[in-house]
């Protein structure tokens, strides 16, 4: 279905943040948002060619043993190096941000209350 809307995948094991971000992006009426609570579920749908993936750093709180965002980022990049990925985390460590950027993430957004506006802005710029 081509509605002219851009396709956004959100991957986060924090249901509350996931829902709030989904609501926020859908209210803009510019994006078709698909949500996943594990990176593995997101990987299965990569064939749908999303325009951008917003990926949380830690993904194993709901499903113990689930792969973390860093691993998923690398797998996404090995499937499609051009796919745009924005990393999301409440990790405020520079080193982690640097690692995700080094592995091909476009941006690193800290999961605080500014994150919604920041992601909205990032998406309007990159897709």
């Amino acid at each position: 279905m081509n509605t002219g809307k851009k396709s956004v995948f959100l991957v986060d094991d924090d249901n509350m943040f996931l829902t709030m971000l989904t609501d926020h992006l859908e209210a803009l009426e510019r994006y078709n948002v698909s949500t996943f609570t594990t990176g593995e579920a997101c990987m299965e749908q990569l064939g749908k060619k999303p325009d951008v993936i917003v990926l949380d750093y830690y993904l194993d709180s709901a499903v113990p043993g689930a792969l973390n965002g860093m691993e998923i980022l690398q797998r996404i990049k090995s499937v499609d190096p051009e796919l745009k990925v924005v990393m999301l985390s409440s990790q405020e460590h520079y080193g982690i941000a640097l690692q995700t950027i080094a592995k091909g993430a476009l941006y690193y957004v800290i999961k605080d209350n500014q994150a919604f506006g920041e992601i909205e802005h990032l998406l309007s710029e990159i897709v």
Binding site: M16, Y58, S61, S90, D112
Partner: peptide, 9 residues
């Protein structure tokens, strides 16, 4: 760690 952003919201 997971619940931390929720407190701020």
């Amino acid at each position: 760690h997971t619940i931390k952003p929720q407190f701020r919201m």
